[in-house]
Amino acid sequence: MTSDTAPTPRLVVIGGDPALAASARSLGCSLVNLQLPGSPVEEYLAPDENYYSIDWHGASFKRFVDAVIRPLNPVAVVSLGEDSLTAVAAANDLLGLPGLQLTTINAFDALYSAHDSMAVSQDDARFTAAMFTVEGTHRMIGIVEHDPDARTPGQVSLPVSLTDEHVDALTKQISTLLNGLKLQDGPSTTEFRVDLNQTVVTRVRLVPPARDLCAVIHAETGIDLERWALGWPMGLGGPAVDEAATTTPDANEEAGQ
């Protein structure tokens, strides 16, 4: 007699933490946790989960993926840490999995090699824009403004100083940049300033914003960017292609400001 129950899909998470692991489990997956040697995992490792201590920056990582991860037959390899994105792309390339690809990592590295002397004025308005890409279509999820007068470093507020025209122009500008990076799917975070009505991009990252910024966006839009970022390679937790083709209203419009 055979069981009709489908096996639980395995999701490889590189460099996770308790909150990230909880979000990944909510997708209905069994986790395979990869951590750098010496990193604590006991506080969030579930009894039935795999755990491996591996230096994903080392030359042996590809051999580890082929010998250890491939037999586990994972459905996706993901991470929300910038230092492990190259490892994610390398694993996806080796295993033929959807998700971040080496072509995007190479284009990203080339971009920053060409702009490594970019300076940011702390007196300019600073913003963070979160976007999500599905099959090459880039969707603006939300924008938050860093409050220069905040007593707590990193405090954010709604982007009351941006007009609808600013948001439309910014969406087009970032989309052009992401096209140049060959980003086909997944999250991206763009930091920028507005100087004499000109938008100057100062940094692009291929991960969701920091958690405090994600919380602001979640409160305004109802979108959990970390969950989307973990689930999209499996077709879970992210927008459909037709949804990605539409632009989410900015936070001012959402709040009726």
Rank of each mutant, 00 (worst) to 15 (best):
D123G: 04
A87D: 02
Q122Y: 11
G16T: 15
D124Y: 08
G237N: 02
A91R: 00
L100M: 10
V207W: 03
L181K: 02
T152S: 13
V201C: 06
V78H: 05
L36Q: 12
A215Q: 14
E220R: 13
Q101S: 08
T176R: 14
W56Y: 14
V144I: 15
H138K: 01
N92H: 06
C29A: 14
G180T: 01
F64M: 04
Q257I: 14
A114G: 07
D116V: 07
V41Y: 10
P233H: 05
V68I: 14
V88H: 02
N252L: 10
R10F: 03
P47A: 10
G136K: 02
V120A: 11
G28C: 03
P37W: 06
S26I: 06
H138Y: 07
L11R: 07
V75M: 08
E43L: 12
V88E: 01
N252V: 11
E82L: 10
E254A: 12
V167S: 02
T189V: 07
G38N: 08
T86K: 11
E42K: 10
F64R: 04
Q184N: 08
E253T: 14
A125L: 11
Y112D: 08
P71I: 09
F132N: 03
R126K: 11
C29N: 09
L181H: 06
Q35R: 11
G16P: 15
S39G: 01
S157A: 11
D109C: 03
R211T: 13
T199L: 14
I143V: 15
C214D: 12
E135A: 15
T86L: 07
D185C: 06
L31I: 06
Q257W: 14
S117W: 06
T189A: 01
N197R: 13
T86Q: 11
G58R: 10
I223V: 15
P187V: 00
L72M: 14
G231H: 00
D109W: 05
D168K: 13
V156H: 04
P9T: 08
P74S: 08
E254Q: 14
D83H: 13
A245S: 14
L158W: 09
P187T: 06
V200R: 15
G28I: 06
L11G: 05
V13Y: 04
